[in-house]
């Protein structure tokens, strides 16, 4: 049993379980899957005077804050008791691409050579951690959702706006990885 919970799960097991989360929220209380809106709720908590322009309603969205608190707790449970000791089994091609980017340590869920506190003093860390996070936050609000709301619930309900957003996710991601990464190649070391 413990073994089963320690290993990563194949996509054909975890994918359907992720997909069931959206209808589960509907059945549990007619709530719509969409995690990025919690970002504005946390902003409103920090700056209450901005609740209105942020379009945040903490009372109405309380369920979502409980939901993301759950995401955090579920991950903590994994961290303390069921952590996968092996590196993520990405493809050989990706490994070789990442080596070319100057990454040598591919252990853990994220590359520790990029995502560490000291790196916040360097261009690379600021780019991946601060600018990356900023663009995620800005983009979700401007585009009206993220991978959960648009990518899963939106596409599952054949929502045209969500399809446009998902196309945007890939335009952005592909541009960044294939055009911008090579340009800043030297700074990535």
């Amino acid at each position: 049993m413990k073994e089963l919970l320690t290993h990563p799960w194949p996509w054909y097991i975890s994918g359907p379980l992720i997909g069931l989360t959206a209808p589960a929220l509907l059945v549990l209380g007619n709530k719509q899957f969409g995690i990025s809106s919690t970002l504005k709720d946390f902003c409103a908590m920090c700056v209450p005077s901005l609740s209105k322009p942020l379009n945040a309603n903490l009372k109405e969205n309380a369920w979502n804050l409980f939901f993301v608190a759950g995401i955090f707790i579920g991950s903590v449970i994994n961290y303390f008791w069921f952590q996968n000791p092996e590196p993520v089994k990405i493809s050989e091609n990706t490994i070789s691409d990442l080596h070319k980017m100057g990454l040598t340590n591919l252990n853990g869920l994220v590359p520790s050579e990029i995502f560490n506190w000291n790196n916040l003093l360097h261009f690379q860390g600021i780019l991946f951690i601060v600018i990356g996070g900023f663009l995620v936050g800005f983009g979700t609000r401007y585009g009206g959702g993220c991978t959960s709301g648009h990518g899963i619930l939106g596409l599952a309900t054949l929502n045209f706006g969500s399809l446009l957003a998902v196309i945007g996710f890939f335009i952005g991601g592909l541009t960044m990885v294939h055009l911008i990464f090579p340009l800043i190649y030297n700074n990535l070391r």
Binding site: G133, L135, V136, F138, G139, C146, F170, T175
Partner: peptide
């Protein structure tokens, strides 16, 4: 908005969840 999000997703490697 989706495209801007995509830039961030490729950098930080993480969406909000």
């Amino acid at each position: 908005g989706g495209t801007i999000f995509g830039f961030g997703w490729a950098l930080a490697g993480a969406c909000p969840g």
